[in-house]
Amino acid sequence: MIPQNFTYQAPKTLEEALALLADGTAKPLAGGMSLIPLMKLRLAAPERIVDLGRIPGLNYIREEDGKIRIGAMTTHYEIETSPLLRARCPLLATTAAHIGDMQVRNVGTIGGSLAHADPAADYPAALLALEAEVRLVRAGGERTLPIRDFFVDVFTTALEPGEIVREVVVPVEAPGTGTSYQKVAHPASGFAVVGIAARVRRGDGKIALARLGVTGLASKPFRADAAEKRLEGTDGAETDLRAAAAAVTEGVEANSDLYASAEYRAHLARVYAVRGLRSALQAA
């Protein structure tokens, strides 16, 4: 389990890092919880690594103008235990608690997880349901994308060569919003066989807002728009939840592996959508 030779660079500033990454030939290293195992198996063999871990100022969770900004190098554990997130955007904190194990959460970062874009990662479901934004930077420029435009396909994001995730922006939840992250964890890897992030708000007795982020089911995480539409305006009765859940998998080509066939995985997604919505409604 020894990686191929590589050049290691540990810049002290973001500018320096972006300059080192600019030509797109180096791989940025954040927490390394996915990249390092891949390198040890030699499935990844980058010639140059730019470690972002020594750059100050990339690790923070703060509220500004009604939004919560999370630095890319913030660890899962910090997100899981952040009093600010627990109080103002609990979905992200509870989702972080489901990632891997304690060791992974202590080292892995939100920016690294997003950039790696494992189709079974946990954050994307929550961030999609939260309609989060990601701020991306590269040498000489930055842009902000809605999270749904960030995920392109399996392990593939909108990041251009030389570009990295700088920050994740999530909303401060309005009162009366209920959220839940429900996951079937693979017993070996801990990755989501399916993971459902549900976010609902009632208004005048009806469901005024419904957001469902889905991970693990397909080649990329996605928002279950049809399910959301089917739920909004209903009373949120059990039959409404089931009807919405049915829409989660419509037209979706589900992943299949040794642990869960496409058929079973789709079934789990529907079951967990109901459970997620139910629990989110209870919290609303």
Partner: peptide
């Protein structure tokens, strides 16, 4: 080889992606 031994969780999705 290695891809068969450690990649089975993602082989299916990856194959689909490459074909696409």
């Amino acid at each position: 080889g290695m891809i068969a031994g450690v990649g089975q969780r993602l082989l299916d999705a990856t194959a689909k992606y490459l074909i696409k």
